[in-house]
Design a protein around this nucleic acid. Structure first.
Lengths: 167, 167
DNA sequence: ATAATACGTCAGCTTTGTTGACATTCCAAG
DNA sequence: CTTGGAATGTCAACAAAGCTGACGTATTAT
C-alpha cells in the first residue's frame, strides 16, 4: 500500500481533487490574462497569436532554421509558412539561405520585427512582473517548478534548450 | 551576487527580464501539456477544446444559464451556441426552460455528458496531480498565487465565484 | 404599451490549425 | 554521376472556433 495520509500530520492535502480542480481552473483563467495584452496589440495590426509565437522564438534564437522553429511551435510547416510569409511580406522577418546547407532558411527579425517583439514582450513582461511581485520570490520558484513538471517530455526539452541559450 | 533572491539583502532578482522570460516560456510550454491529454481524447470524437470548456463549466455549476456560461467563457453567444448545439444533439447536454424566468435556459450534463466529463477531467487531473506531487505542497501554493495574480480583474472574479461553489 | 432581456439563428468573415500532393534544391552515398 | 532522401516551399481543400451584424421570438420589466 502506498499513497495516502501517511506522512506526519499533514497528509497530501494538496493533492485532493478539489485542489487539483482549482489548479486546473486557475491555469485556464490565468492563461487568458497571460495572452490578453499581446492579443490586444496584435488585433490592431491584423496579426494573431501565431504571429506572436513566431516572432518570440525567432527573437529568442535568431538564425534558427524553419525546421527548428517548427519543432518548437509544434505546428505543420504549411501553417507556419503562412504566418512566416505574412511576416516577411510585411518586412518583420527576413530569411537567409544557409551557407553550409543551402536548403535551410535561417530566420531573423528585421528592425521593425524587433520593435514589434519589444512591444509585445514588454506588455507580457509587465503583467508577469506584476504577478511575480505580488506573489513573491518563493511563490515564483514554486510556480516554475509546477509548470515544468506539467510539460511533456519533448516540451521540457525544447524549454530547456531555450533556457540554455542566454539564461 | 548570485541567485536565490530571499528576504534579506538580495533585492528583486526574481524580477529580472531573464526570469520573466523564463516564466513566459514556461507558461507557454506548460499550457500545451495542460491541454494535451483532453485534446487527444476529444480529437477521437470530433470535439475540440471549446467543447471541453463548455462541459467543464456546466459540470461545475449545473443549472447555470447560457448567459452565465457566456460570461465565464468570454466568447460570443454565436460561438457558444454552435458548440452547445452539437453537445445537445449528441445527448451530452440538456437545457431546461427556467421556472422563474422562462426566457432562461438552464444547462445540465446528461449521464453521457457526465461520463465524458469524468474521462476528460480524470486525464487532466492525473497530469496535474503528477506535477503537484513532483513539485511539492509549497510549490503548489506558489503556483496558485502567481496564477491568481496573473488574471484580469473579471477573470479573477469568475474564478473566485467558481471557487465558492464547492471549494 | 413599450422597452429591455435572454436566447437562438442565419450569413459571412478571419485566424490558425489540419491532410495530401507535388516541385525544387541540395547533400550524401553508392 | 546518379539516385535517394532531407529541407523547404507551395497549391488546394478543409475544419474548428472565434468574430460581427442582423433579425426573430419569447418573456419580463417598466
Amino acid at each position: 500500500m502506498e499513497g495516502g495520509a501517511r506522512e506526519t500530520g499533514n497528509p497530501l492535502l494538496f493533492l485532493t481533487d478539489e485542489q487539483l480542480r482549482k489548479g486546473i481552473e486557475a491555469m485556464f483563467f490565468a492563461y487568458r490574462g497571460f495572452t490578453a495584452d499581446p492579443d490586444r496589440i496584435l488585433s490592431d495590426i491584423a496579426y494573431g497569436r501565431a504571429h506572436h509565437r513566431a516572432i518570440h522564438f525567432i527573437h529568442r534564437s535568431p538564425g534558427g532554421t524553419v525546421n527548428n522553429l517548427l519543432a518548437i511551435l509544434g505546428v505543420t510547416k504549411q501553417s507556419l509558412n503562412r504566418v512566416l510569409r505574412g511576416l516577411m511580406e510585411d518586412g518583420l522577418v527576413r530569411s537567409e539561405i544557409g551557407k553550409r546547407d543551402k536548403r535551410e532558411r535561417h530566420l531573423y527579425l528585421t528592425e521593425a520585427g524587433e520593435a514589434l517583439e519589444r512591444q509585445l514582450s514588454d506588455a507580457q513582461r509587465d503583467r508577469m512582473r506584476a504577478a511575480y511581485r505580488a506573489a513573491g520570490p518563493e511563490a515564483v520558484t514554486g510556480f516554475r517548478q509546477v509548470l515544468e513538471a506539467m510539460m511533456d517530455e519533448d516540451m521540457r526539452n525544447r524549454y530547456d534548450a531555450l533556457k540554455d541559450l542566454k539564461g
